[in-house]
Structures are given as C-alpha cells and as structure tokens.
Design a protein around this nucleic acid. Structure first.
Length: 343
DNA sequence: AAATCGGGGGG
DNA sequence: CCCCCAGATTT
C-alpha cells in the first residue's frame, strides 16, 4: 500500500471543502454540533438516495414532523405517507420505531455505539451522526468514499474493510465531521462515477487513478443480480379516488397500501390468477383495464389490472401511502367526473 | 459473503 | 440501456 502524506492531503481537501462544499439544509448549526434530529432524518433519507432527490422529501418531512416527539407520536401511516415514492420503506418504519426509543429515553445518543443501536442506523450512519452531532472521530464509508479512495489509491476492487481502513487513516482528527462531508462532496460533485473532473480536484496530485489516465476504471463495476421478470394481477374495486386497498405485508413494499393483488404462479394465465384473487376477496371479476410495467432494480413487474365488483370498504386513495406501481395501476382508470374531461 | 429492499438521475 | 445513489438488514 502506498503511504500518502496525510497532512497536506487533508489541508488540500478541507480548504476545497470550505470554499466549494455544498450548502445543504441539514448542515445548519455548528460543525460537530449539529441538531441531532435534523441530522438523523437527513441521513436516513439519504441512504441510497441522491441528495437532489432527498431535498424535497427532507423539507416536507420536517414540516410534517418537526421534532422527534412529534414523529414518535404520529401514526406509522402518516410517516409512510410522507415517505411515499422515496423507496426503501423499511427506512421509514425503522425511523418511526427509533423515534419512539429516543423519545422514551429523553435524549439522542451520545456516542457512536449509541447511534448504532438505533433501528435503521448501521456503520455508515452511526459514523456520520456521531461525527456531525458530537464531533466524534469516526470515518464514514459510503459510495462516494469508496469511489474517491479507490481512485486515490488505484484499487480496482476495494472491499468494505479496505475502504474503512483507508478512511480511518485519512480522517482528520481535528475536524472529523467536516472531513467526512468533504470526501462525500468531492465524490458527488468532482470525483463522479462516469465523468470525473480531475482538473479542479484538490487531490489530483496524489491520485493514482488520474495518473493511470483512466480514472473511471476505478473501482470496477459491481456485478449485479439479473433483473427478474414478475407478473401479477390486481383488482380495482371502486374508483381511482375511492378504492378498496390492502396493506402490503412482508419486506416488499411492506406497510404501504395497494390494490389487492396476486402474483401469477408458474405457467398460470392472468385470468386464472384473477379468479384466485377474486375468490379470496369474495369479488366478481370484471374487464381488463390494462397492464402497467414497473422496474424495481432487480425486478421487472408486469401488472394486469382488472376491474372487479364486491361489497368491500372503500377508502380515499389520496390519503393512503402507495407505491409507484399502484399509482400507475390506478391511473389506468381515466378520471370521468362531469366536466373534467369534456367530450 | 450474498441477497433483498425502490425509485429515479445521468451518461 | 446500464450504473449508481450520504446503506441496513437478513440469510
């Protein structure tokens, strides 16, 4: 392993950060002494979610739940509604659970280990929050850090342990929170995945990937599981404004509401699956409204949406937290209020 | 170590 | 179309 000189490298990156770092709403307050509630909500929201996308959700979420006490007291349905469309809904469920723990103990964690003990807080988030809110010397390891360090050291296949060791060694003990934010800002705005801008990079003089002439070769792309094609049927009972909805159980979209649905069994036709679904609901199958397709990283879902009739409770769709897939399905029923779509 | 969990931005 | 994103949890 090449030993990089830590002090000049730290000074160069922190000087760049102080000049060119991003101005983000969760960065208000003193360095190393940020408001733990605002910092925590941001870190959970930003897990596997790009900053530009998280911004809108952040403001709306804080407006709906201004304090951890308000979050703890709110029904989970309201929390999921605020999270609607953002994905990885276990984050919202864990955030709600953790809020109850924090409210019960009357204070936010005062250490890395304390943060790590909260549901939904793993090694990255505990390092981020302990450095941002407590000034604790813990180095974050996220996608940006992985890419920046892989390029800096010229490592094509950086393991999590390799990244953490390098991040720990480089962390500036005088400004751990600022250092963590600086590496992430560099990765997000300069050392980007496909088009790194080496010219303005404050670390260029030490960077092995830049010296190689092919910075984007570091790190090598991760091998990903193939996308699996899935088919299912759903029943629309009622209208797109007031429909019969079910709560999804399990890990996939768990906690969200959606149209009653059944996955097609191997070799099964959509009509047969619809018959199974209607038998379960005590409903009468109706005509096909259409199909919607929806991609979910490792799944490509084709949903066949049918109308159905039944004496089942309807609820206002606008107040329920729905996945994008169900919103697409509901959109198949054209709004037909008098005057909305004149003939 | 590998699989699973959403949805969208950007080349 | 493909890779990636302020990862965590479960297997």
């Amino acid at each position: 392993m090449i030993a990089l000189p830590p002090e000049p490298l730290r000074a160069a990156l922190l000087a760049w950060f102080d000049r060119a770092g991003r101005d983000l709403p969760w960065r208000r307050g003193p360095e190393g002494g940020r408001d733990p509630y605002r910092a925590w909500v941001a870190e959970i929201l930003l897990q596997q979610t790009q900053v530009a996308r998280g911004l809108g959700y952040y403001e709306r979420f804080l407006a709906a739940f201004p304090t951890v006490q308000a979050l703890a007291a709110a029904p989970l349905e309201d929390v999921l509604k605020a999270w609607e469309g953002c994905g990885y809904y276990a984050r919202a469920r864990n955030l709600h659970r953790a809020a109850a723990q924090v409210a019960a103990q009357g204070a936010f964690p005062g250490s890395y280990e304390g943060w790590l003990a909260l549901p939904g807080v793993g090694p990255y988030t505990a390092a981020a929050l302990s450095s941002f809110t407590l000034g604790a010397p813990h180095a974050v390891n996220d996608g940006n850090v992985r890419r920046v360090l892989a390029r800096l050291y010229g490592e094509r296949a950086p393991s999590p342990a390799w990244v953490q060791a390098r991040a720990d060694a480089l962390l500036d003990p005088a400004r751990p929170g600022a250092w963590n934010e600086a590496v992430m800002d560099l990765g997000a705005t300069v050392c980007t995945p496909k088009a790194p801008r080496c010219a303005p990079c404050p670390l260029a003089q030490w960077c092995a990937a830049r010296a190689s002439g092919e910075p984007t070769a570091y790190p090598a792309p991760k091998v990903r599981a193939p996308v699996q094609a899935v088919q299912a049927v759903a029943a629309l009972i009622g209208s797109r404004e007031r429909a019969h909805l079910e709560r999804r159980e399990g890990t996939l979209l768990g906690g969200l509401m959606g149209l009653p649905a059944e996955a097609l069994l191997a070799g099964e036709s959509p009509e047969a699956a619809l018959a199974r679904l209607c038998a379960r609901l005590g409903a009468t199958p109706g005509p096909l409204l259409g199909q919607v397709r929806h991609g979910m990283t490792h799944r490509q879902v084709t949903l066949h949406v049918y109308r159905a009739q039944a004496e089942l409770p309807l609820q206002p769709v606008a107040q329920a937290a729905l996945a994008r897939l169900d919103q697409k399905a509901l959109a198949l029923e054209a709004a037909r209020q008098e005057g909305l779509f004149p003939a």
